[in-house]
Design a protein around this nucleic acid. Structure first.
Length: 426
RNA sequence: GGAGAGGUGGGUGAGUGGCUGAAACCACCGGUUUGCUAAACCGGCAUACGCUUUAAAGGCGUAUCGGGGGUUCGAAUCCCCCCCUCUCCGCCA
């Protein structure tokens, strides 16, 4: 969420941001500001009454001690009267606070000035392209056929055991998963990230902290009986790791990498968009998370992006980088890049990484702060995250792009050590 | 899952209804002393919110002793629910 004071001081800027993100016409901002005025008025009145009440209670204590029972008695009557007034005020104040909170949660983050204004995915800016599309002298097979030919995955039995979107990986398929996970983690650690393993379920507070609640509960599988959610991304547990903490100034930046399975309920479209590994309910991902000082966050975004891109280059996968436009970037982000790899048989781009700067939007809700040198008041930090990388579509592109005329699949050199072979198939 | 004991400021830890936003000690920051270090001594040291010409700073106030609710004129202290930690038992990778 945004800082209320910031919204008050920059109402027009926030309204423009909402319109550019395609979220309402900005009238919510005016509603919020007037709700906040009402709230503050009630707070002031409540506190004044509370002050009187506290003074009265204190006086009663003193009178009792001196044995002046009669005077104490009339003071108690006065105090009781104040208490009744206080109760009404407190209820009104609580309601006003809730209204402000609810409105505040509906105000999206403000896009960075470098973000292109636009409404649809067509308005995203292709900022960079790398690598050449492979040329085949034969009919290239989509990855689901390649998986099948090499016995690398079993979708049918996955459906039987769990449901659609929960494949088994088998033989070289399972080994390729393991190789990629290790490759991504090793690269991240070499780049200075601290490797951690996180819980795969989180409580409600954590889901709220990173913004999955209250609006996106349909995204997550829920263990209702225990009040827990299966994580849709490691972003949730890893960012919440430092919820309600105050860092010393020399503790930042902190950079984590974490491998986790991710669980997503989202019922997507049908047909070839969701064929094979294109869209799953459970998939594996290495996530990168940064906790940084505000002044460092845009440099950190570029560092994060470059790290993710280096992985694609090492895997020799043609990719492009999109700078997401205001309308397609999401509610909580202030700037976001997507990386998409070229899937040679499907002849389409597949999103494999999403890299975002949230500025203070997440950290404010989670109260993650740091104490700047010489400053008394703690400041909200900035958080960022990005995939480094998500596996299924990497596997899809890897298989499709590297298929050979003899039916075998070449493993990129950088991955051969982790995989333990130069190719799949004879 | 069963039984018991606990959760107080960065840490240890006092505090069983008004004198406690909270003793004391440690850590940390500033100062005095000092050839340097150490020691000693003095001072400071939570967070959020509201008000204050809301630029800071300062001042005033309110709330917070795991979380929520209740009793009371008044709660860290009494009652209820929940969460967490520890010990023992059970179960288990």
């Amino acid at each position: 969420m945004l800082d209320l004071q910031f919204i008050r001081d920059h109402a027009d800027q926030v309204k423009t941001a909402m319109i550019n993100k395609g979220i309402g016409d900005g009238t919510l901002v005016d509603e919020l500001i007037s709700a906040d005025e009402a709230r503050r008025d009630l707070i002031t009145r409540t506190q004044e009454t509370q002050t009187e009440s506290n003074a009265a209670a204190k006086a009663i204590g003193a009178l009792m001690k001196e044995g002046k029972k009669d005077e104490a008695q009339s003071a108690i009557a006065e105090s009781s009267r104040l208490k009744a007034a206080l109760k009404d005020l407190e209820e009104a104040q609580k309601a006003a606070q809730e209204q402000v909170n609810a409105l505040l949660l509906e105000i999206p983050n403000v896009p960075h000035e470098s973000v292109p204004v636009g409404r649809t995915p067509e308005d995203n800016e292709v900022a960079f392209e790398w690598g050449a599309f492979p040329e085949f002298g034969f009919d290239a097979m989509p990855h689901w056929e390649l998986l099948d030919d090499h016995g690398m995955a079993d979708f049918d039995r996955g459906s039987k055991v769990s449901g659609a979107g929960f494949p088994f990986y088998t033989k070289d398929g399972a080994r390729l998963q393991r190789a990629l996970i290790n490759f991504f983690l090793d690269e991240a650690v070499a780049a200075g990230y601290m490797e951690i393993q996180s819980p795969l379920v989180v409580n409600e507070d954590s889901a709220r902290g990173t913004g999955q609640l209250p609006d996106k509960e349909d995204l997550m599988y829920e263990a209702q009986r225990d009040g827990l959610y299966l994580i849709p991304t490691a972003e949730v547990p890893v960012t919440n790791l430092h919820r309600d903490e105050i860092f010393e100034s020399d503790a930042l930046p902190i950079r984590y990498c974490a491998y986790t399975p991710c669980f997503r309920r989202e019922a997507g479209s049908y047909g070839k968009d969701v064929r094979g590994l294109n869209r799953l309910h459970q998939f594996d991902k290495v996530e990168l998370v940064h906790f940084v000082r505000p002044e460092d966050s845009y440099q950190a975004l570029e560092d994060l992006r470059e790290h993710a891109e280096r992985l694609l280059q090492k895997l020799e996968l043609p990719y492009r980088r999109l700078l997401m436009c205001t309308g397609d970037m999401g509610f909580t982000q202030s700037k976001k890049y997507d990386l998409e790899v070229w899937s040679a048989a499907q002849e389409r781009w597949l999103e494999v990484s999403s890299i975002s700067n949230f500025e203070s939007f997440q950290a404010r809700r989670m109260m993650i702060r740091y104490r700047a040198d010489g400053e008394r008041k703690p400041r909200i930090i900035h958080t960022l995250n990005g995939s480094g990388l998500a596996l299924p579509r990497i596997v899809a592109a890897l298989l499709e792009n590297n298929q050979q005329s003899d039916g075998s699949i070449r493993i990129p050199e950088a991955l051969q050590g982790h995989f333990g072979a130069e190719q799949i198939g004879d």
